[in-house]
Design a binder for these strands. Structure first.
Lengths: 198, 198
DNA sequence: TGTACATCAGTGAACGCGCGTTCACTGATGTAC
DNA sequence: TGTACATCAGTGAACGCGCGTTCACTGATGTAC
């Protein structure tokens, strides 16, 4: 039953991306290795040909999720003015759970505290994802503000992560949407007063 | 072995508060009924004399945590001016994980997404806690802003929840503290521009 | 280029373990008279 | 107020179950000559 190198690599990627989707929709703690392997059309035993432990897959799955999200955001803001780019990042991030297809979910908001109970590798992946997100936003903010773009970006990311976390907890879509809307307005007010010459 | 009504009530409260601390420090998914009962100096079998399921305890433990947090905050701001009250709520909330004793932790930030995978009762408790927190902040904001105190309070709570969530994920205390500091500055900048007559 | 052997991806059963929950039992507390 | 019985908080063993992980096995792929 041995597979070719390219088959093996494709299988591995399939397991990682399947796991990523499952962790993000059901929570890291509620998805087992059997669930993941079955969803990837394989049996449990094959898991350890690709990963040394479940925890390693958790780290890789989140790394993949951050890559997907950041690549999407970078693509969406390419060619936009800094002000448009900032607005796009904020609204795409805030609406990540609303878009029916639920691709491009951010582990920071969707898994949140679960990441802080992961092993050191999982946490390192999460921190790196956070830093990439802050940097992306800071790059667009830099031309807009006199100083402190990075600090402002950090504050805005906290707001976005908190808003999406809270909106996901609320079972009522109306109030969940209000949380997102209030955070969006708050960020816009903040930006309006932080812009150069205001 | 039957205990008196008051003993029974005291035992139940002890289980709830023990569970609350354990859930907040280790995560809901990583604490079992045996762990909780042992920490409360009892054996596993007694659990179901007090709760119909583990999930019911999760709900009650979080309700207790919100009560503890809100009562503390209300006490701390009593007698303060609105501006001082807002500042106190924000800094007490942001430093909840830093204070060595780690009493008064907020389930929204510490458990976060885990609450969204709880049953409907758990989620309802979380939403109620969120609303109480927003209301407390909005009450102090109302005299300070011309309008939109509730919306602003909602945005600030998102920022605080996100900041504490992110700071807890980061294993490096220096960068974790920077996340909290940046969010604090961001909130202060927001308030400075939202105040009446500014 | 062909052949012989080593490698290893994937299978499916099995491992030990800890979980939430149930149960028969004990004996002090609560209740009815 | 005292007595007899019912209740039920707490114990500790046991239940079934699903988990992460291991293992012997299969057979196609990769490698050495």
């Amino acid at each position: 039953m041995r597979k070719s190198r390219s088959d093996t690599a494709r299988t591995r990627k399939r397991i990682v991306s399947t796991a990523s989707k499952m962790f993000l929709s059901e929570g890291v703690a509620h998805v087992g290795t059997r669930d993941i392997m079955a969803a990837a059309s394989m049996t449990q035993g094959g898991f350890y040909r690709h990963f040394k432990s479940r925890e390693q897959l958790v780290a890789e799955a989140n790394d993949a999720a951050f890559d997907l999200l950041l690549t999407m955001l970078e693509g969406e803001i390419a060619g936009n003015s800094p002000a448009e780019a900032v607005e796009k990042i904020v609204s795409l991030y805030l609406n990540q759970s609303q878009n029916k297809k639920r691709l491009y979910l951010c582990p920071l908001a969707i898994l949140g505290a679960e990441l802080s109970h992961g092993d050191s590798n999982v946490r390192a992946v999460a921190v790196r994802g956070y830093q990439r997100l802050v940097q992306l936003l800071a790059d667009s903010l830099k031309p807009l503000v006199a100083s402190g773009a990075h600090e402002l970006a950090s504050g805005i990311v906290s707001t976005m992560v908190g808003a999406v976390t809270l909106a996901n907890i609320d079972p009522d879509p109306v109030t969940a949407h209000a949380i997102l809307r209030n955070s969006h307005s708050t960020i816009q007010a903040l930006l309006a007063h932080s812009e150069k010459g205001s």
